[in-house]
């Protein structure tokens, strides 16, 4: 049985079908790239999986258990963690508190020292451990992204959803970021990552799914997907519009 199954996920915003009957699945420990031109529905799909938005129809299943119709907090509790395309941190809380919350309110329900230890481990993995007591409001953009990833990791999730987590980094940071995600993947975490940076996709994802105008147009090995005429057409069509 697959760890995460997306089954005909559909989302309509009024007349616009942002996600149109998308189906694919992730195996335990897999790292899968989710590609597609701007506005193709990638973030919306992530929102459907994490429960940020209710589905119009379709289902997602984690370990065979249906998540459709569940609230975001219930889905988080079930073991799905995510980061946001537009980074979201809690500016009035310390780094430690920012990260601790998923340990406290997630599946493991840690409290006290256990929660702090989990948070510290997560902060350590992204290289922020030495600033645990600082206020999150003072962080630079890249550190905010790190903090957000640490928060997702402290949930000790079964599936991690990354929405362009590598966007906006300089080349050095990008190399560090890729190394960090590879490390997470090698530690056994199942990851679904939305990414525009092909270098990162090639380096990290053996397999990708590609969306265009809400529909899935490819689900195959990365190399063949990037040479797939309909994938190339989708991207070219997009840049021709722009």
């Amino acid at each position: 049985m697959s760890l995460l199954t997306i089954d005909k996920a559909t989302k309509k915003f009024g007349g616009l079908t942002a996600v149109d009957g998308v189906s694919f699945s992730l195996e335990q420990g897999e790292i899968l790239g989710l590609l597609g031109p701007n506005g193709s529905g990638k973030t919306t799909l992530i929102n459907l999986i994490s429960g940020a938005l209710p589905m119009t129809s379709g289902d997602t299943r984690l370990n065979g258990v249906s998540l459709a119709g569940k609230r975001a907090d219930q889905i988080a509790h079930a073991g799905v963690a995510r980061t946001f395309q537009l980074v979201r941190i809690l500016p009035s809380l310390s780094l430690m508190e920012n990260v601790m919350i998923t340990a406290v309110f997630g599946a493991k329900s840690h409290w006290g020292q256990a929660a702090k230890d989990t948070a510290m481990t997560a902060l350590g993995r992204v290289g922020l451990a030495d600033r645990a007591t600082a206020s999150a409001g003072s962080l630079t953009y890249i550190d905010q992204k790190r903090l957000e990833l640490a928060r997702a990791l402290a949930a000790e999730p079964e599936v991690l959803l990354l929405d362009e987590w590598l966007a906006g980094l300089n080349p050095t940071e990008l190399a560090q970021g890729i190394a960090l995600i590879r490390e997470l993947s090698q530690s056994g975490l199942t990851i679904l990552m939305v990414e525009h940076i092909m270098e990162a996709v090639r380096a990290l994802c053996p397999r990708v799914v590609v969306m265009n105008s809400g529909s899935l147009i490819a689900d195959e090995a990365t190399q063949s997907a990037l040479n797939d005429p309909c994938v190339i057409a989708a991207y070219l069509g997009d840049s021709a519009d722009a």
Partner: peptide, 10 residues
Amino acid sequence: VVAAHSGIPL
């Protein structure tokens, strides 16, 4: 939004 995605029943 972060609260809900961290498992907090709002």
